[in-house]
Design a protein around this nucleic acid. Sequence first.
DNA 1: CCAGCAACTGAGAATGATTCTCATGTTCAG
DNA 2: CTGAACATGAGAATCATTCTCAGTTGCTGG
Lengths: 134, 134
Amino acid sequence: MSSGVRRLTRQQQAVSDILARHTDFRSAQGWHAALLAQGSAVGLATVYRTLQFLADEGRIDVLRTDSGETRYRACSVGHHHHLVCRDCGRTVEVDAADVERWATTTAAAYGFTAVDHTVEIFGRCATCAAAARG
Amino acid sequence: MSSGVRRLTRQQQAVSDILARHTDFRSAQGWHAALLAQGSAVGLATVYRTLQFLADEGRIDVLRTDSGETRYRACSVGHHHHLVCRDCGRTVEVDAADVERWATTTAAAYGFTAVDHTVEIFGRCATCAAAARG
DNA sequence: CCAGCAACTGAGAATGATTCTCATGTTCAG
DNA sequence: CTGAACATGAGAATCATTCTCAGTTGCTGG
């Protein structure tokens, strides 16, 4: 299955590095732009490839927005979900042990296996709500 | 804001009708193909427009798959979530009062308002699991 | 230290889903 | 019935993402 021996390249390190230095979610294109801005020339295709690889390995978080964009972020430890402000994009990590349990149990009740789930909460954070009211 | 007076057209009815006659989730293109198959000539753009309108009105369910496709289905009554087989696409509706409560409470704890959420469980149904094993 | 090859890269083309354009067709009020 | 606003649809345009493939490079055996 795993025929390839992954090589360590400057580009892959650049991607990992920039992810490690920021805590926000950005699209592949966003990270690509950030890399260019800091002077690391890495091709867009490579950014996509690396991000996907890291995501598959579970080393970074993936979030799919309503507009169909996929955003990535350095993964803090463990499995968790997100509370995202739909106005400013601020993200809060939430633990959801109860939800995990519920998802697994529910799926099992219907005979489903190899279960995975998506749980994201979108809303408006206090700051944006105040701004909107102003 | 609502400058337009929505008119009732043959095309819109065709879309609503076919949705009402099926219970599965399909992509806009899938519904478009189904319409053509039954002899209702409706443009793809119109299918997209109508589906989006119905979704905005909350009259149909929307589901975004991992591959980035958006699927639609006639909405049964009430709010609920889905358990989707990643192989055959079979969908089971699950009630999740607990999860609703959790989402609302969690969001409120962080000062978020106007909360909305996405909860989907993906897995492999018993039938597909058996087929894969065979 | 060097050769050689497989894995990696990147520019741009290709893809696939969705949205937009705008000339033409329809619905509905009067 | 008539006009005009709204809807439609064919195809072009977008947008994010993936693919292609020739050129580059990390790594391992010699």
